Amino acid sequence: MVRFKNRWILVEFIPVVQGTAQLGKSPTGNGLKLDGKIIWNALRQSVLASFGDTGWGAVGLSLTVKYFSPTTNICIIRVARDQHKIAWGALTLITSIDGARFIPNVVHVSGTIKHAQLAAITHNREVIARYRALAKTPVGYSDVYESFLDTSTREIEALQD
């Protein structure tokens, strides 16, 4: 018996902000809150527009959004190993999601969920460090990001294949 082999894609959706952004405010002008379903629909539309029905037929059954963090805008996507390049290509061709402009940045691609989890946890810590640097907080300062890091680490580690 042969098992179903996957690729796990870790993506960061970087919002494109017109003008100056303020920390703590919505990065998009229309206040769009991303979630897994919205990302899946945008990825579906990108596959259909770029690769047609044949591309969607190849990718559609195995494509799932397993995790999304609205704080750091990172997402873990599972896709079949043979079709991961179609999904990766469609991800990089996404320019806007429901009218809000985003730049998808593929951070990591792995063959196991464990390596995707480790990369996501590491990336979360880097993004939170950037937020703290923007806010100019001291290193030992305890803030809401500590609880976010704890909960997001538990959520990511709880993901199952």
Results as ranks from 00 to 15, higher is better:
Val107Ser: 09
Gln117His: 06
Arg130Lys: 09
Phe68Glu: 08
Cys75Met: 06
Val59Pro: 09
Ala87Ser: 08
Ile128His: 09
Arg132Gln: 11
Ile103Lys: 09
Ala120Asn: 04
Ser62Glu: 11
Pro138Leu: 03
Asn73Cys: 13
Leu91Tyr: 12
His108Arg: 06
Ala135Thr: 06
Val109His: 02
Lys85Tyr: 03
Leu93Phe: 02
Ala58Asp: 00
Val79Lys: 02
Leu61Thr: 09
Thr122Phe: 06
Val109Cys: 11
Ala133Lys: 09
Val79Leu: 05
Ser69Pro: 03
Ile86Val: 14
Leu134Trp: 04
Thr112Ile: 01
Thr64Cys: 07
Ala58Glu: 09
Tyr141Asn: 09
Asp82Trp: 00
Lys114Phe: 10
Ser96Thr: 11
Thr72Cys: 14
Thr122Val: 10
Val107Thr: 13
Ala129Asp: 15
Ala119Val: 05
Arg78Gln: 15
Ala90Glu: 01
Ala87Glu: 04
Val106Gln: 05
Pro70Thr: 04
Thr71Cys: 06
Tyr67Cys: 04
Ala135Met: 13
Gly55Lys: 02
Ile103Cys: 08
Gly60Thr: 02
Trp56Ser: 01
Leu134Ala: 11
Tyr131Pro: 09
Ser69Trp: 05
Ile103Ser: 11
Ala58Gly: 03
Asn124Lys: 02
Ser62Pro: 02
Pro138Ala: 07
Ala133Glu: 13
Arg132Asp: 10
Lys136Pro: 00
Ala116Thr: 05
His123Thr: 07
Ala58Phe: 07
Pro104Asp: 02
Val106Asn: 09
Gln83Trp: 06
Leu91Thr: 03
Gly99Trp: 11
Val65Asp: 10
Ile103Phe: 10
Val65Ile: 14
Gly140Lys: 01
Gln117Phe: 01
Trp88Cys: 06
Arg101Tyr: 07
Cys75Lys: 05
Ser96Trp: 00
Asn124Glu: 15
Leu61Cys: 05
Asn73Tyr: 14
Ala133Val: 01
Tyr67Pro: 08
Ala120Arg: 04
Ile128Asp: 08
Ala119Thr: 07
Asp98Ala: 12
Trp56Asn: 01
His84Cys: 04
Ser69Thr: 06
Gly60Ile: 00
Ala87Leu: 02
Val127His: 02
Ser69Asn: 13
His108Cys: 13
Arg78Cys: 14
Ile74Asp: 07
Trp88Asn: 11
Glu126Leu: 00
Val109Asn: 03
Leu93Gly: 09
Asn124Met: 11
Val139Asp: 13
Gly60Trp: 01
Gly111Ser: 08
Asn124Ala: 15
Ala87Gly: 10
Gly99Lys: 10
Arg125Cys: 14
Ala135Cys: 04
Leu93Arg: 05
Asp98Arg: 13
Glu126Cys: 01
His84Asn: 06
